[in-house]
Design a protein around this nucleic acid. Structure first.
Length: 826
DNA sequence: GAGTTTGAAACT
DNA sequence: CAGTTTCAAACTC
């Protein structure tokens, strides 16, 4: 991201933030329909009611996204940012929210993006609000409508060109005309922008709430999701972009039903410019084909956004940057999906997007700054992930959005990458590759700090015979506001290109450009079945959580290893002098990776599994057990990936049938006592290890065995007189551990010996001293010696050592006496 | 790195 | 639910 973005972006975004000001009552009222009642069906009213209700809710809500993900927009640059945030929580049934921020350039062009939302879902009020400048002189005005949402795999783009002088009403009318059938879900509202806020349109606070539960089901890895459920889940947002300054800038909310019929969309405009209550003419509907015939269609700014699934913490971010080239570009957003179940979902990492040295290098020249070359080279899917930035955070210069492009993760077919974040949220990103070439392409779109700067970076790497290409879509200052990546592939019989090269002219793609056909997706990755058989599934990118994490690690490595090109032989380092974009390094190897114990970000990386027989679909596999996709593992015949989603889901179901808590964390806090002590929920069953080896899950977790355990000969017990610290240290230091063992052992023996009455019992009442047999004395001495050793190892001073030894002696005596009393009692 | 040990998971 | 088998990690050499 460019340097100067930070402030500009903030300036642009903040005004748009959702707050009482931006979404005041007036706003709500503005959202109300002022059309004739006759124009709307009961469904419409319902939809409207829903919208308003949600809007009200949103007002109460914390502003989420806008601040989180900023796309820096330079002046005169049209930019569109879509930042869906996805948060995956273990409970994924929640309504999904998506944050979208739209900003339109104010200067020459105004773009209004209409997003269509999948039907059947209640369109949250959040939908999309776009505010644009009013009164700016426009050079051109156009309305772009992309309505692929239908999910049939074909996308259509409508572009309406109209004179700059066109009035708002005219424009609205025109736009309305474009949309045919009106479904309840399709609503477009246009509002004039506030004069004071010259900049851009934004979704109100960038929140779009998707009420669809289907989306949640769509989630790739959702454990409970069945393939069937996914079938309808294609959440594709279609945006219509209205370009033109004079247009009544306003907010447009479009929801398109995802019903099969793409063409049924209704757009309604509310013109607020002067008064929010201005009502535009009733919507007219025409078919897209008609629109084309009318000459209204053309290429332009189109975006598809796949809904991010769950709530607020979305990580996948798509950003559209205006390309310098005149060509229209398209961008496809891939939604992250939630995982429903116990699957561990880690939160998006706060990415330190500052990595400027990305892994792209050699081919940079190839890709750089030429959109066409980039595009043509490989089919691409663009996935931009943004870590969950803290609200209010503006991406500063040099921030990088990384999209990991690893193919290797999954052999061949796996294109799902998991990202784990510390908070146990996982996001899944599916990397799309062309089946024929077997290449995986990732496109990162970023902005350069300067308007003029265009960064295109491509990375091609062959690993294991597979080539990976990472592309960075150039950022640009030119008129075109949106960069689109669209699947070109389906059109072409040969390799499927999921993404249409940015350079590709719109004309070619006008009809098909937008949506990535589900079929193409299904063919991804060596033909492995993707999410569902249903075509609607499409465009889903699922990234396993650790993906980002690992990616960060890779970046860190790359940074540190810039001097060692060998590792990156084929990889390319992208030096974004402009600091804009970094693309995830492609380096991946199936070979064993050394995992550092802790990542720089403090996250402990998951170990790669080595499963050979379980296909990583049983709990033997740590990855699977943790609800993660295998990533960079050494497993054989792995099915723990998106490519085998059905199978995986079956396995998950099976596991849950056996044990509903199978995917729950094993280590938790004590329940009964409510204490803070971590305990193994199930307990161990160790027999031979004494619970002092890593075979023991308790020991491995560095927690003492508890009553839940059924272990035999357990020595993994709490040592009250040993500091927790020592316990921890003991676990880490073998020598210390040995000392601890000795100490424990002797204590145990002492306890047993003391408790056990001497074989030769006298008749009279036994006194405590009677228990001081030679054995007891010996063990006591051993305890003292062990304590001395312990003190010595800890390098305590003499005074402390003596004190500890004396205390130990006291403890021994106490134990002996207590044992004597117990013996008497019995 | 190969082989052994171990205990959780899976199976019966 | 208990016993057995399978499995992969931990461990040893």
């Amino acid at each position: 991201m460019s340097v100067n973005k930070g402030q500009n972006a903030r300036a642009l975004v903040e005004p748009l933030a959702l707050d009482s000001r931006t979404l005041g009552d007036g706003d709500l009222s503005a959202l109300t329909l002022s059309h004739n009642n006759e124009q709307y069906s009961s469904n419409d009213f319902e939809a409207f009611a829903n919208i308003q209700a949600e809007l009200e809710c949103m007002n109460a809500e914390e502003v989420m996204t806008t601040d989180e993900e900023h796309i820096i927009i330079g002046r005169n640059i049209e930019t569109e940012t879509i930042v869906p945030d996805v948060e995956m929580t273990e409970v994924s049934e929640q309504a999904q929210e998506e944050h979208i921020i739209y900003t339109t350039a104010n200067q020459n062009n105004q773009n209004i993006v209409f997003q269509t939302k999948p039907t059947l879902q209640r369109l949250p009020a959040s939908t999309v609000q776009v505010k644009s400048n009013v009164g700016q002189v426009t050079q051109s005005q156009s309305i772009m409508i992309v309505s692929p949402a239908g999910g049939q795999g074909t996308s259509q783009i409508l572009k309406i060109s109209h004179p700059s002088t066109a009035s708002a009403g005219q424009l609205q009318s025109l736009a309305q005309t474009l949309i045919t059938a009106k479904s309840a879900d399709n609503i477009v509202q246009l509002r004039s922008a506030q004069p004071n806020k010259p900049v851009m349109a934004t979704s109100h606070s960038g929140n779009i709430t998707l009420g669809s539960v289907q989306n949640a089901k769509t989630v790739q890895s959702a454990i409970k999701r069945t393939a069937q459920s996914t079938s309808q889940n294609r959440n594709v947002y279609t945006k219509m972009i209205l370009a033109g300054n004079q247009t009544p800038s306003g907010q447009v909310l479009i929801t398109s039903s995802q019903n099969e019929n793409q063409q049924t969309q209704a757009i309604k405009f509310l013109n607020n410019s002067t008064s929010s209550q201005d009502v535009t003419s009733p919507a007219k509907t025409i078919t897209l084909a008609q629109a084309q015939q009318m000459g209204l269609l053309s290429t332009n700014k189109v975006q598809h956004i796949l809904p991010s699934s769950p709530q607020k913490q979305g990580i996948i971010v798509n950003k559209l940057v205006q390309s310098s080239s005149s060509q229209t570009s398209k961008m496809t957003l891939v939604p992250s999906n939630t995982i429903k179940s116990p699957t561990k979902i880690l939160p998006a990492p706060t990415m330190n997007t500052q990595v400027k040295t990305s892994t792209i290098s050699n081919q940079q020249s190839t890709f750089s700054s030429s959109n066409k070359s980039t595009v043509q080279q490989s089919p691409q899917k663009v996935i931009i992930r943004q870590s969950s930035l803290k609200p209010g955070t503006v991406l500063g210069s040099g921030q990088v959005i990384r999209i990991p492009a690893n193919q290797n993760i999954v052999t061949g077919s796996n294109q799902v990458h998991q990202i784990q974040m510390p908070s146990r949220q996982v996001q899944y990103v599916r990397l799309v590759s062309t089946p024929s070439s077997g290449t995986t392409n990732v496109v990162t779109v970023g902005k350069t700090k300067s308007q003029t700067t265009l960064q295109t970076v491509g990375v091609g790497q062959k690993l294991g015979g597979q080539q990976q290409i990472v592309k960075v879509v150039p950022l640009n200052t030119n008129n075109q506001s949106l960069r689109t990546v669209a699947p070109k592939a389906t059109l072409t019989g040969s390799g499927q290109r999921l993404l249409i090269p940015a350079t590709a002219t719109v004309s070619n793609q006008s009809k098909n450009a937008v949506a990535i056909p589900a079929s193409a997706l299904s063919q991804l990755a060596s033909g492995q079945a993707v999410l569902s058989t249903n075509s609607n599934v499409g465009n889903i990118v699922v990234l396993p959580a650790q993906y980002i994490q690992q990616q960060s690690a890779d970046d860190a490595k790359l940074k540190s290893q810039q001097a060692t090109p060998g590792l990156l032989s084929n990889s390319q380092n992208l030096q974004s002098s402009t600091g804009t974009i970094s693309v995830g390094s492609v380096l991946e190897n199936k070979t064993q990776r050394s995992y550092t114990s802790v990542e720089p970000n403090g996250i402990r990386p998951r170990k790669p599994c080595n499963c050979t027989k379980s296909q990583c679909l049983k709990l033997y596999c740590d990855c699977f057990a943790n609800g993660e996709f295998c990533h960079m593992c050494n497993c054989n015949n792995c099915s723990n990936n998106l490519g085998n989603e059905e199978e995986r889901q079956r396995a998950i179901k099976s596991c849950l049938e056996r044990n509903p808590n199978a995917f729950r964390p094993k280590i938790g806090k004590g329940r009964e006592t409510g204490d803070d002590i971590r305990r193994h929920n199930k307990g161990c069953n160790c027999k031979r290890s004494g619970c002092l080896k890593n075979y023991c899950e308790c020991y491995e977790a560095k927690i003492p065995c508890s009553a839940n355990c059924k272990c035999i000969g357990c020595r993994n017990v709490e040592e009250p007189n040993l500091e927790k610290k020592s316990l921890k240290d003991l676990a880490e230091a073998a020598e210390v551990r040995t000392a601890q063992l000795t100490l424990n052992k002797t204590k145990l023996q002492l306890s047993e010996m003391a408790f056990r009455p001497p074989a030769t019992s006298n008749t009279g009442a036994r006194q405590p001293f009677n228990f001081l047999t030679d054995k007891v004395v010996q063990i006591t001495c051993e305890c003292l010696m062990a304590q001395a050793d312990e003190a010595e190892r800890n390098m305590f001073d003499d005074e402390t050592s003596q004190r500890l030894i004396i205390e130990e002696f006291g403890r021994c005596l106490k134990e002996i006496i207590e044992s004597a009393h117990k013996a008497e009692a019995t």
